[in-house]
Design a protein around this nucleic acid. Sequence first.
DNA 1: CGTAATCGTTGCTGATCTCAACCATACACT
DNA 2: AGTGTATGGTTGAGATCAGCAACGATTACG
Lengths: 167, 167
Amino acid sequence: MSITNPESPPVALPRFPEELVASTAFLLKRLGFAAKEKAMSEYENTGLTPYHHAILVALEEDTHETQGSIADALGYDRGQLVGLLDELEERGLVERRRDQADRRRQLVNITPDGRKALNRLRALSQRLEDDLLSPLDPAERQRLHELLLRLAEQHLPHCARLTPTAR
Amino acid sequence: MSITNPESPPVALPRFPEELVASTAFLLKRLGFAAKEKAMSEYENTGLTPYHHAILVALEEDTHETQGSIADALGYDRGQLVGLLDELEERGLVERRRDQADRRRQLVNITPDGRKALNRLRALSQRLEDDLLSPLDPAERQRLHELLLRLAEQHLPHCARLTPTAR
DNA sequence: CGTAATCGTTGCTGATCTCAACCATACACT
DNA sequence: AGTGTATGGTTGAGATCAGCAACGATTACG
């Protein structure tokens, strides 16, 4: 029917409307989502997810955490955490034991195998971070991180008071 | 039981592990998610969502778009777009009509009411953007946007070639 | 003591995305 | 022309996941 001129691209490659790209919030949403998607697929081979990784990180940082404090620290629903801990426990990466001082509580510990797994996840996570930030040089990466941290202090309740009035 | 010393905070306010906060990808994910949550709740009063907003933006930018081109431009699933357009059409904000040159296609137009609604959504979106970026001064906001744009060009397929080698 | 609150657990619900069919239409080929 | 293939829009089913309420066990309060 209509003669498509051969030198033009066969279809206009899809592009975001400029008005959206001009919005920082839009870029933040899309980049955050893309980073999550990428991470989820890369973690797949490990049999674990970034959620498990975050739990292991929290456990290694302060030992003897209770399930509630882990959930609060990471911003997870407590019901959600139960299943994640079940999976970690099945693989022998964490242990649960009742707090004898308050037998409602479960004290969660990371095991030696858990630390090994954590180190593997750290390496993977570092590769993902490098890939994400590959367009930026080290100084730019630091500036970006600092700017995001400022936003996080304001908007992520759990990040408050990280740089104590170091404005 | 144990005497809690009175000057200490009653409970340690939950805080992300430092190792996570040190990750730019983590901040990106959380901030993007928080921005989306905030937007979704603020849009609620309008009866529309950021998805509808993006569609209206796309429609005003290039007119006479077909549903497929809208879906591709915004990265939406085509099946998902149908429902969103149904809702916009019910409210009289867009019109669908068959392309007489290719009767498989639906040409979508924004209506005058759609433009009015779009302007309201723009104002709302601007308020959200200002709130999100409130910790940063104008120069910092621009730097952040530029850095995110560089990442987007690399990682969001639809953002490629926005600053043509303007490094 | 008895009532209320907390902790972990379970199950349900609602939202959302993905994917696979499906119909109508257009295009390609002989 | 006619047949087969591809495309655009539509619909519906299935998977996934966060959020919420309810529950038993235990502890704290008064």
